[in-house]
Design a protein around this nucleic acid. Sequence first.
DNA 1: TTAAAAATGATTGAAAATGATTATTAATGA
DNA 2: TCATTAATAATCATTTTCAATCATTTTTAA
Lengths: 256, 256
Amino acid sequence: MITNQRYEKIMDCLNERGTASVNDLVDITNSSTATVRRDLTHLESKGLLKRVHGGATVEQMEREEDYTEKSVKNLSKKLKIAQIASELIEDGDTVFIDAGTTTYEMMPFIKASEVTVVTNSITLIDQLVRNGHQTIVLGGRVKPATKAVVGHDVIEKLRTLSFDKCFIGVNAIDLHHGFTTPDEDEAYIKKTAVEHSRRAFVLADSSKFERSAFVKFAQLEEASIITEDPDHPFLVKARSGTEITGGESNDIYRDV
Amino acid sequence: MITNQRYEKIMDCLNERGTASVNDLVDITNSSTATVRRDLTHLESKGLLKRVHGGATVEQMEREEDYTEKSVKNLSKKLKIAQIASELIEDGDTVFIDAGTTTYEMMPFIKASEVTVVTNSITLIDQLVRNGHQTIVLGGRVKPATKAVVGHDVIEKLRTLSFDKCFIGVNAIDLHHGFTTPDEDEAYIKKTAVEHSRRAFVLADSSKFERSAFVKFAQLEEASIITEDPDHPFLVKARSGTEITGGESNDIYRDV
DNA sequence: TTAAAAATGATTGAAAATGATTATTAATGA
DNA sequence: TCATTAATAATCATTTTCAATCATTTTTAA
C-alpha cells in the first residue's frame, strides 16, 4: 500500500470514529506499528489529527482544549481571525457559515442585524439562535465526529441558494493545490458554497500555509484569506505570484 | 481501549444517566478502579463532570425544570412514556422522531441497534449522535423557541421518505378534534410524518386528554397513543366510542 | 542494470499508563 | 458516639506504548 492511501485510510477511520488506537490502524493499513506511528506524526504535523497516548483523535469541536501555552496562543489567533471575519457581515446579509472550530468562534462577534445564516453545522445553531439570527440548517446525514451535516441533499440545496458572503474553514493552503481539506464530503460542500457566494472568505491561521490536504475545494483566487498575520511570507509570495494576479476583487484579505 | 475512548464512554454514560458509580464505569470501560478514578480526576479538572463519593455526576443543564412537586411528577410521567416509546424501536428500524420535550426523553432509552433516526429537532441530534445512531436532520428554518426545524423544505423532504415508525409529541387530544397542537408549521410536519409512517405513535401524558389546541394534525385512529395511564377514563371512552372502532391495527396503546 | 534514496519493519531502552496493594479517609448504622 | 463498611489516595510492580536506531526492502534516478 502506498503512503497516501494509508494516510487516507487513517483519516477516514478517524473522521468516522473520532478516535482510533495504533493497533486499530495497524490492522486497517496492514502496516507495522512503526509505520503507523510515522504516519501519525506526519499527519499531526499537518494539523489533521492529534496524537494521544495509544492512538490519535480528530478535534471534536467540543472544548477539550488543554490550556497549555500553545493552545491559548492558537485560540487567540482563532479569535482574532473570527472577529475579523464577523465584522465583514453587514446588516441584511445572507451568509453561509461552514462547520469548523474557527467559524464557531465567529458567533459572539456577529453584530450585524437582520442577518440570515445558512449552515451545515449543528454545533453553530445553538449560538446562532441564541443571538437572534435567522438560522437555516441544511438537511442530511449528521457526521458524528464533527456534527456537520453532509451528503447529497446538502449540495442539492446549496445549489438553489445564493449568498452575499460565505465563511469557510480550511485545513491547508498552498500555491499549487489551493485550498484543501481532508474530508471529501465536506470539501464538496465548501466548494459549492464558494461557487454560490458573491464573495468567499477562507478562515486560516498561518499554521495552515504551505501545506496541503487531500481534497481541493477552491483555487487561491476564488476566495479571500482571513488570517492573523497578513504579512506572512507565504501571503507575500502568493500576492506576487502569477497564481493570483487574475483576482482583482478577491485579493488576499490583509487587514488585522 | 485507549484513554480517549474511555473518556468518551464515561462522559456518554454520565450524559445519559446523570450519575454513575465507579463500579458502573469499571464495568463499562473494562478497566480497574484505579484507572477509572484517574480518569474521573482528569475529567473533573476539565470541568466535564463532578466527582462525588462513590462515583461522578454531570450537571443536567438541559433540564430547566423548576423542581416543584408538580414538575417532578410530570417528569416521571414523561420518562415512563418515553421509555415505553423507545422500546417500540426495533433493530434496523428507520424512524421519525418529532421535536418536543417528551420525545427528547426517549434518547437514553433507545437500545435497538442499526437504527436510523430522522428528526427536525436540533436538540435531539446531540444525544442521537452520541449514542451512535445514524442521524438525519431535516433542513430548513430553525425556530428559535423550540429549536425545531420548520418550513416547506421539511415537508417536501418528508414526502420523499417513509418510516417504519414515527414518534410525535402533542399538545391536546380529544374525541372531536383528534390530535392537535398550537403551531401550524409544526402541525403540518407532524401530519406529514404520520402519513409517511407504517405505524404512528403519539406521546401524551394524561394531562393532554380532553383538550384541544388550534391545529389538528391527525385523527385519533391514525396513531396509537402512548401514555402513562392506560386506564384513564378518556381512553376507555375513546376505545368504546365510534370514533376509533375502525382502527384494528392502530389501537390505543395500553401497556405500561 | 546499478547506485542512491526513501520507506518500511524489527529491536531496544525509556516513558507512560495501568492494575494491585495498602494505608487513610469518608459514609453508614447501631 | 463508636464501630463497621465502603471509598479513596498513594505507592509500587507490571504491562503497554513510545521514540530512536539500524537492517532490510522498495522505489527512484542515473
